[in-house]
Design a binder for these strands. Sequence first.
DNA 1: CAGAATCCTTTCTGATACTG
DNA 2: CAGTATCAGAAAGGATTCTG
Lengths: 133, 133
Amino acid sequence: MSDTHTGVTVPVPVPADADCPIREVLDIVGDKWSVLIVVLLGQSTYRFTELNRAIEGISQRMLTRTLRILVRDGLVTRTPHATVPPRVDYALTDLGRTLLEPLTALNTWAGAHRDDIAAARRRHDTAEEAAAQ
Amino acid sequence: MSDTHTGVTVPVPVPADADCPIREVLDIVGDKWSVLIVVLLGQSTYRFTELNRAIEGISQRMLTRTLRILVRDGLVTRTPHATVPPRVDYALTDLGRTLLEPLTALNTWAGAHRDDIAAARRRHDTAEEAAAQ
DNA sequence: CAGAATCCTTTCTGATACTG
DNA sequence: CAGTATCAGAAAGGATTCTG
């Protein structure tokens, strides 16, 4: 493969799903709720209903589903207690905690640049509006 | 709001979309292609067709669409050249480049823990299979 | 070449009702 | 309480065709 603007030959930079680490993270982190849950569990253990209340807008169905995936991926533990009424605690695993750091970096970035992004959008939208006239 | 297992009152940790930085990043980064494009453009400028070829599996439609959003968010520049045949170069803005660092952190994490995740999945799936018997 | 437009399929998500 | 099951709507994504 030849790179038109540099003349340099480059390898395929983003291979198909299986063997691309970037796509793997996205599979874990790229959905609507996983990150939110991981960040919350980074603060303390939560039980099902607590998570449901803490994450505004999540449905019971999606919470169940997402937790399952996180447990399967080894990021979260699920520990049921044989009490009445039943109680299930969710917490991060050691692996899950290692994810906290890069996520925090992303979160920090968002906080630092949200204004820039908002400004860029305004610029873009008004410029586009002007072009439409 | 009272935290059942600690007895401590906590604020709502994950507010609705508008004012939550985490959700904002996810809006940018949480889709199937944006990160891939940003990472590629972190290496050099690309033109449309180059991106299309470099990102295995992306459709023309999705590439166009995603690039538009990235441009609107001020992360990517689009510079058309009035040549025949036409040519459009895409590159990161300064803002876009700042995103590279947290993304790299995430990528590094993925590389470092992909085996752990794969192992967790195997454990989980075989345990589940055993339970099904 | 770099898209735009259209159509169609798949996936995701929320609402609702039910259960151990 | 902590889910499961079912259904319907929304959204995302892909394939194809067409154009400046």
